[in-house]
Simulated scan of single mutants.
Amino acid sequence: MISCKIITGIQARWLRQPTGKVTIYYANHSSHLDGLVLWSCFPKSLRHHIHPVAAQDYWAKTKFKRFLAKDVFNAVLINRKPINNSNPLAELETLLANKQSLIIFPEGTRGHGQQIADFKGGLYLLAKRFTDVDIVPVYLNNLNRVLPKGSKLLVPIICSAVFGEPIKPLQETESKNGFLTRAKQSLEELAS
């Protein structure tokens, strides 16, 4: 965790301190370091209950990456292209049911850090099934410059993570599109 903080100089700003309540933290995604750096912002006492969600096709490519993701950072690796109608959210649902928290990136893939892309449906499906969990936006700034898309070279730059207030839970009559738009807007508000 110290190495994440040294490389990025990450400065976390909490509009509400973490309580230990089961939470889905969702953030913009512009670097392969996002989940690891975000996870390092949490107090050590909470980290073993919080799981960054990462793409299996990237993080399971080598033994070293898999070791980092699973054994060091407590990550859950998911298959973004499910086989035979399997549920890519099944492991996430199990973790939430077992009172574990998640860090997810609803854009689905990382962008260049200039703007937040439209969200995929995973956040909506989890919010629909787990109505009692907090859903907290986290805006990550500058991580796209630490490890730019397509680069393998780390550039030490000061980064920040702004943890917002939980968004209003999914409303009974709220559409998928309405919920995802509202969640994205809450994240965009943290950017300013």
Rank of each mutant, 00 (worst) to 15 (best):
M1F: 14
S3W: 15
C4I: 03
K5R: 12
I7Q: 06
I7R: 02
T8L: 10
T8D: 03
T8H: 06
G9A: 07
Q11G: 14
A12Y: 03
R13M: 05
W14T: 01
Q17W: 14
T19L: 09
G20L: 08
K21F: 07
A27N: 00
H29D: 00
H29E: 00
H29I: 04
S31W: 06
H32Y: 12
L33I: 04
D34E: 06
D34T: 04
G35K: 04
G35Q: 02
L36Q: 04
L36N: 03
L38E: 09
W39C: 04
S40H: 01
C41T: 14
C41S: 11
S45F: 12
S45N: 15
S45D: 14
R47T: 09
I50V: 09
H51K: 03
P52G: 02
V53W: 02
V53K: 00
A54N: 03
A54G: 10
A55F: 00
D57H: 11
D57E: 13
Y58S: 06
T62A: 10
T62F: 06
T62G: 10
F64C: 05
F64I: 08
K65R: 15
R66W: 09
F67A: 08
A69Q: 07
K70S: 08
F73S: 01
F73H: 00
A75W: 02
V76N: 05
L77I: 11
L77S: 06
I78A: 05
K81R: 15
P88I: 05
L89Y: 04
L89A: 04
L92F: 00
E93G: 10
A97C: 05
A97P: 03
Q100F: 08
S101W: 01
I103V: 07
I103T: 05
F105R: 09
P106V: 00
P106N: 06
G108E: 05
G108T: 03
G108L: 10
T109S: 13
G111E: 06
H112V: 14
G113V: 02
G113L: 00
Q114V: 14
Q114H: 13
Q115M: 13
K120E: 09
G122V: 02
L125C: 11
R129Q: 08
R129S: 07
F130L: 07
T131R: 11
V133L: 04
I135Q: 05
V136W: 00
V138N: 07
L140C: 08
N144H: 07
N144P: 06
V146P: 05
L147P: 04
K149T: 13
K149Y: 09
K152A: 09
L154A: 08
I158D: 14
S160F: 03
A161I: 06
A161M: 06
V162W: 03
E165Q: 14
P166R: 10
I167W: 02
K168E: 15
Q171N: 09
T173E: 11
T173D: 13
K176G: 08
N177Q: 15
G178R: 12
T181V: 13
Q185E: 13
S186F: 12
E188P: 10
